[in-house]
């Protein structure tokens, strides 16, 4: 599986138009991300990291350039098809967890499976989500609602959810931004382990420790990749 390209972006630019002003968030970026590797994107605040992640995650579709996922262009896909790709091929982890507060940990994890419409029974989905929660060390917390969980636990639920449909690409935008050092280490290790399972992990992080886990580090500066550092 080595050197198989998961996501590739070519000549990618993003300009925000705000109050008649143009804000160039990304300038002509060319990058490719391979399976089995842990990518870290660093950069100053406002350098365009989140903007890049949104494009990679098919959240933002208004940009210039070409994005390919599994060697397939996604630029002209309809929102329904993009939703399908997000659901099956990509797992998301955010700084603010983004869990559904009215669903238990287990239900949060099985939501992507429900959306996926694969022919699993509800029971099978529950079992699968239990296994995923076991994996992130929350087997005792499956019936808890997000507000009954600590920040670290919530983020682990979010990770379990990101893995629900066994996607090959994980996008994590500052996943440990709200967590303490121990939880951070736990989550970095989890992500590292996933990358060893031939997943493509792309993480944005301000943490100094993150570099220890990453295989490749990209440094964004004012919307451009600065290759000097690594």
């Amino acid at each position: 599986m080595d050197n198989v390209v998961a996501i590739e972006i070519k000549k990618c630019s993003k300009i925000y138009h705000k109050n008649g002003k143009d804000i160039v968030a990304l300038k002509n970026i060319n990058l490719s991300f391979e399976y089995g590797k842990f990518y870290l994107i660093v950069g100053h605040s406002g350098s365009g990291k989140t903007t890049l992640m949104n494009i990679l995650g098919l959240i933002d579709s208004k940009y210039d350039g070409i994005v390919k996922i599994n060697n397939k262009e996604v630029n002209n896909l309809k929102s329904k098809e993009l939703a399908k790709i997000r659901n099956t091929n990509i797992g998301f982890i955010f700084q603010d967890f983004y869990l559904d507060n009215f669903l238990t940990a287990q239900e949060n994890v099985l939501t992507p499976m429900l959306i996926n419409q694969k022919k699993y029974s509800y029971k099978e989905m529950e079992d699968k989500s239990q296994i995923l929660l076991d994996k992130v060390g929350l087997s005792e917390r499956i019936k808890h609602f997000p507000k009954e969980l600590s920040g670290g636990e919530q983020q682990r639920v979010a990770i379990a959810r990101a893995l629900a449909n066994n996607p090959n690409i994980i996008l994590a935008d500052e996943p440990t931004g709200n967590l303490d050092v121990e939880n951070e280490e736990y989550i970095f290790k989890l992500l590292k382990e996933m990358s060893k399972n031939f997943k493509c992990i792309i993480m944005v992080s301000h943490s100094k420790d993150a570099k220890k886990y990453a295989d490749v580090v990209y440094n964004l500066e004012n919307g451009e990749i600065n290759y000097d550092e690594d």
Binding site: A83, R86, N87, F92, Y98, D100, P112
Partner: peptide, 16 residues
């Protein structure tokens, strides 16, 4: 709105 976003992110389509 937050849940809407989460669901959209996770791949809900308009039909769902």
């Amino acid at each position: 709105e937050k849940n809407l976003m989460i669901n959209k992110l996770l791949g809900y389509n308009n039909q769902q």
